[in-house]
Design a protein around this nucleic acid. Sequence first.
DNA 1: ATCCCCTGTTACCCGGAAGTAACCGAAGGA
DNA 2: TCCTTCGGTTACTTCCGGGTAACAGGGGAT
Lengths: 142, 142
Amino acid sequence: MQPQHQADALQERLAQSMPSMAELCTSTDPALFRSLLSRIGDKWTLLVIGVLGDERRRFSELADIIPGISRRMLTVTLRALERDGLITRTIYAEVPPRVEYELTTLGRSLQHVAMAVGDWVSENQNTIARNREHFDDSDPSL
Amino acid sequence: MQPQHQADALQERLAQSMPSMAELCTSTDPALFRSLLSRIGDKWTLLVIGVLGDERRRFSELADIIPGISRRMLTVTLRALERDGLITRTIYAEVPPRVEYELTTLGRSLQHVAMAVGDWVSENQNTIARNREHFDDSDPSL
DNA sequence: ATCCCCTGTTACCCGGAAGTAACCGAAGGA
DNA sequence: TCCTTCGGTTACTTCCGGGTAACAGGGGAT
């Protein structure tokens, strides 16, 4: 049995049974897909997207609302979101300066997905915490 | 103006306008929430969940299908998923050994969310790639 | 003259995620 | 006797996300 041929057959079955995840593996640019995925899953992005909600907010509002975020990480996160076209950044030439951030249409579409993720987590976190305890208890060596 | 009072007022407005993301910040265990989020967003989990789909698969099938994953990372990812109760691990006492993995009900519920994320990414990845190019071109120094 | 405000930037450090390579064990086959 | 298969484990190293602290800058208030 040729392993390569076997792998091809599996890829084929995968493509038939799971169109969207197959695309995920094979389509356009897996590196881009992965970068978007890890961006979504990073420490602050979903929080910022969520807090931004449907109102524009300024930098220091975000820093106050999001518990524990440093100015640096807020800047980094906002820059990345702006680069991806998920938020807009508006600077007001005042003293002291004022900068406001707002979700774009694209950003709002991501927000729906983010909400789905957030809902799933809050619905299932207790179950998962229990599963973890049980797993750790029943097999402490592994 | 008391900054603390201001922050409280913002938290309050947040709680009214965005119930689910407010829960996300304030509810049960933010560390658990974050650990789940980063697990979902890690390099391999969604891929494994997606490939597992609705069929059980054995270790070497997964290793063949998922492009680029090492045995170690596959093991690590599968263990974490098993610990959370998202997949089951079935060992057949044969020689050579056979081990099959399958999504649990909880795992399938996560799969729906994963699909939503995957769909969003594949729908919008080209737009985002263009946004990134434009951003990098128009402001190369930042 | 000095401090504060707001929105960052820069330099530096740390821990954990991820990658590489070698090894394991039991049974069957040459 | 040695090699192969499968499903891992172990040890070591590399990479990068994220954290801390200090500084910038320009006008207003004390």
